[in-house]
Each structure stands twice: as structure tokens, then as C-alpha cells.
């Protein structure tokens, strides 16, 4: 794998750039500045940095207060704790009171590996997307992370972002494409079947597409980087034009990307949908690649499912 830059570092670099011209940008950490790769920001802009210690409820409440006072707080805290421990502060102090707080969930999904279920965040999308007024975004690679961070600084209102811990392979050649929160990106055109993925599973979907192409299948790949507001148009179009959909996510099969897509499909244009993700159990211990393979979040398994759906 060529890319060695983790998405967390891209967020720090981008915020470092933007904070020069915008003194309202603030970064908060909960004993997490190292794992968030935010130490350079803390060192460069100490007046725009706040450390709260190991206190994930406090960090969201403090951020809501800062936002209410005109600041643009970026909370950086492990996705598992930020999305669960702080959920009421997020629902009430961020979403309900409509404060401009950006919640960056780091080391998300299963990227904490063998640290176990306390450290996995595979229910976060289900919880976050049920909260009115909160945007939910998962960038697929470093290029998208940069564009997303720039968009977030301009975006007014609460947002939850989930990134993983380790560098991920590029899915874009450059950042020369249009990124709009709420607008999916069609990575590959295709007419037989659609794969809809988000975050680190976009890479897996692209690999599956390559295998399917060899098998003579025309496969569309959609990067649904924003889970909320959801790009319904892209989903309905995929259902209408390709007739079958596979969703792939680093999340429980309940309530996440697959569920969001299925909600649209059954109500707008019913076609078969298969949901690939983490089953309803504490995820097995292991590295991301091991966990993905174990649960069939892999090009091979997606190809198999696609061929079954196509009756081949």
C-alpha cells in the first residue's frame, strides 16, 4: 500500500492551514491529542486548543458552550466513547440546541482491533443518524478527508465524522473532484448491480468491482460519504437503473448504511438489497483486515453475493 498518511493527520494539517485565517476554529481533545494526531495543532495554536482530560461528556458540553459563543469547535475523541458516552450531550446540547459543533470520532469502526467491543464503534452510525439535524460523514481516503474538513469549516451546524486509525489506500487520484456534504460520488458507472459503500469499505467495493468486471458484470460503485443527509436520489437512481444493490459498511448490519439505503429502496423503488457488515455480536478480536475477512467484508465475498443476486 502506497499511502502512509492516516486521515487523522490530514484533518490536523487541514485545520492548521485554515486556523491561520480563522481564529474561531478550535480543537478540543480528551487525553486524545496523540491518537488524534492533533499535537501539532495544540503546539501551534495553544490559544485555539482545549484539553479536557478523560471526560467525553464534558468535552461535548464545553464545545456547545464555545459554539454558542461564536467559536467553531472540532472535538477529537475516540469514536467509541464520543458516540456513546457523550450521546445525550450530542442530542441535546449540539443537535437540539443547534450549536455548530463538529464531532470527529477517531479510531472508529473496528480499527482498535483486539481492544474489544468497548473500543469498537460499530453502532455509531445507527445512533447518530437517528438524531435530527446532525450531519454524519465518513471520508473514504486522505483526499476526501481534506475536502471534507474544508467543507466542515464552512458548514453551519452539528456534524459527526468517523475516521479510522490507520492509513487507508487511496480511492481518488487527487482531490480534484467535487465534494458536497449530502451528495454521493459515483466512483464507477455500471448497469447490472450497484455497490454502495462508505468510509474504508469504499476501497473494498472498488476491489469487488474490478473482480466483477473480469467476470463480465457491469457494476456501479457509489461512495455514500454522507450517511445523513442521505443522497436519496443516487439510491433511487441505482435501484431503478441496476435493479439490485449491495451495501458494505464497517458497522453493525443493524441501523447503519445498509438500513438507511433499504429504508429508501423499500419506500421509493423496491429492489433486492443485501447488507454486508458486522453481525449482531461483539466483533472478533483482530486487525481490521482480519475482522473484515472474517465477516465477509471482502472483494471475494461481495463478488459471490453479486453473482448470486444476478443468478449466475
Amino acid at each position: 500500500m502506497a499511502n502512509k498518511i492516516p486521515n487523522r493527520q490530514v484533518i490536523c494539517d487541514t485545520l492548521l492551514d485554515l486556523a491561520k485565517g480563522d481564529r474561531d476554529i478550535m480543537v478540543l481533545a480528551s487525553d486524545s491529542r496523540g491518537s488524534a494526531a492533533m499535537a501539532p495543532f495544540a503546539d501551534t495554536y495553544p490559544e485555539q486548543f482545549v484539553e479536557v482530560g478523560i471526560a467525553e461528556q464534558n468535552i461535548v458540553g464545553i464545545s456547545a458552550g464555545l459554539a454558542h459563543s461564536g467559536k467553531k469547535p472540532f472535538v477529537t475523541s475516540p469514536a467509541c466513547f464520543l458516540s456513546m458516552r457523550s450521546i445525550e450531550q450530542i442530542k441535546v446540547d449540539v443537535a437540539y440546541s443547534a450549536t455548530n459543533v463538529k464531532l470527529i470520532g477517531i479510531s472508529g469502526g473496528v480499527s482498535y482491533g483486539a481492544l474489544g467491543m468497548s473500543h469498537h464503534s460499530v453502532q455509531d452510525l445507527a445512533v447518530m443518524r437517528a438524531i435530527p439535524g446532525l450531519a454524519v460523514v465518513l471520508p473514504a481516503d486522505r483526499h476526501e478527508t481534506k475536502k471534507m474538513t474544508e467543507a466542515l469549516v464552512k458548514h453551519e451546524g452539528g456534524a459527526y465524522i468517523r475516521i479510522g486509525r490507520n492509513p487507508v489506500e487511496d480511492v481518488y487520484d487527487s482531490d480534484d473532484y467535487e465534494f458536497i456534504i449530502g451528495k454521493a460520488v459515483t466512483m464507477r458507472e455500471g448497469s447490472d448491480i450497484s455497490i454502495i459503500a462508505a468510509g474504508e469499505t469504499v476501497r473494498v467495493a472498488l476491489d469487488a468491482e474490478a473482480e466483477l468486471k473480469e467476470a463480465g458484470v457491469s457494476c456501479r460503485v457509489i461512495n455514500m460519504h454522507t450517511i445523513k443527509p442521505l443522497d436519496k436520489e443516487a439510491i433511487v437512481k441505482a435501484a431503478r437503473e441496476t435493479g439490485r444493490i449491495i451495501t458494505v459498511e464497517e458497522h453493525s448490519i443493524h441501523g447503519g448504511l445498509g438500513a438507511a439505503v433499504a429504508e429508501v429502496v423499500v419506500q421509493e423503488h423496491p429492489v433486492p438489497v443485501k447488507i454486508v457488515g458486522i453481525p449482531d455480536e461483539p466483533a472478533i478480536a483482530g486487525k481490521t483486515s482480519e475482522v473484515f475477512n472474517h465477516y465477509g467484508i471482502s472483494a471475494d465475498n461481495i463478488k459471490k453475493i453479486a453473482l448470486e443476486m444476478l443468478g449466475r
Binding site: 482491533g113 483486539a114 481492544l115 474489544g116 467491543m117 473500543h119 478480536a285 483482530g286 486487525k287
Partner: peptide, 21 residues
Amino acid sequence: SQFGTRLIGHPNNKVAGIEMN
């Protein structure tokens, strides 16, 4: 901490002697 282990990086009460996760 290896693939599939019970001895993960935090207490796991599937293992005798551990009360709570």
C-alpha cells in the same frame, strides 16, 4: 491480542476470574 483470542486488550468475562468487561 491475536486474531480470535479471548485474551483481548481489556478484561473479558468470558475468561474465568474476570468479573466484568
